[in-house]
């Protein structure tokens, strides 16, 4: 579903990704780990098409299309979702209005009419419950004054409402209490299906106890330097990254 070949990308003239390869098939869950500043979030933004992130070489195919040719919003409508490491606030725009506009944008691409308000509200309320957010959050401004953990759960809420083909979760587990971590895990697990895949960026093996990954990759210096199964995460937890970075050097 997602094929990344020799991806090079820069931000503000600084090269961050330096020849990254990754292949994700439908139904799979990939975990990406790696030191701070190694380029994990950059990868997510490059895939999502964040303005200012320049691809200097390489190729990315998503669902058979040349992903890098598509506008940011087209990538999203095609089913690529990025849960942000640092969700931004949009004061004055209610979560509900925002979610409905997002859902309708996807429907429009599929040639469907906007969702009717009643069934939308019903789904939104149920999904709130699933991510353990009070439905009053639907009426508040997007992320406006939300706590760190609430913002993360709000990202999950959006992902569950949009039902993407590929979910990229950038440290959605960071800053969550243990109950909230379970909520996120339950949400992701409930969405796992043979035609959907996840790429989860995390620093903690803990998350992987709840969401079992098919692959674990280590991103360092802008490249995937090691891939393995779940046991790689345990090894990293025990030994840190220094030995890997040395090996690569």
């Amino acid at each position: 579903m997602l094929d990344i070949e020799n991806l090079h990308a820069s931000v503000n003239g600084t090269d961050i990704l330096k020849g990254l390869n990754l292949s994700v098939k439908p139904g799979e869950v990939h975990a990406i780990m790696g030191p701070n500043g190694s380029g994990k979030s950059t990868l997510g933004h490059v895939l999502a098409g964040r303005p200012g992130y320049t691809v200097t070489a390489g190729k990315v195919t998503f669902l058979g299309q040349d992903l890098l040719e598509l506008e940011t919003e087209e990538r999203a409508r095609l089913g690529l979702f990025l849960a942000f490491q640092y969700p931004v606030e949009i004061p004055g725009v209610s979560n509900m209005e925002f979610l409905k506009a997002a859902v309708d944008a996807q429907r429009e691409r599929r040639g469907e009419k906007p969702i009717d308000a009643v069934s939308f509200m019903k789904t939104a309320r149920e999904t709130c419950k699933a991510v353990d957010l009070d439905p009053v959050f639907l009426k508040r401004g997007v992320n406006e004054g939300f706590s760190g953990g609430e913002k993360k759960r709000n990202e999950l809420l959006q992902m569950m409402m949009l039902q993407p083909r590929l979910g990229i979760l950038d440290e959605t587990d960071s800053g969550l209490d243990i109950d909230a971590l379970q909520v996120v895990a339950r949400g992701v697990n409930s969405m796992r299906s043979p035609d959907r895949a996840f790429v989860m960026v995390t620093h903690y093996q803990r998350l992987l106890d709840f969401i079992e990954p098919d692959f674990v990759h280590v991103l360092a210096g802008g490249r995937i330097v090691r891939s393995g199964d779940k046991s790689l995460a345990l090894e990293l937890e025990a030994r840190g990254y220094a030995w890997l970075e040395e090996e690569v050097a």
Binding site: A48, G49, R50, P51, G52, E71, T72, E73, A76, R77, F81, L82, F84, P87, V88, E89, I90, F98, A101, A102, A105, Q106, R109, V142, Q158, L162
Partner: peptide, 15 residues
């Protein structure tokens, strides 16, 4: 902000 617009676009809305 650019970040707000990016968030919206990532969710499928045009600018």
């Amino acid at each position: 902000s650019d970040d707000q617009l990016y968030l919206c676009q990532q969710r499928g809305l045009d600018a």
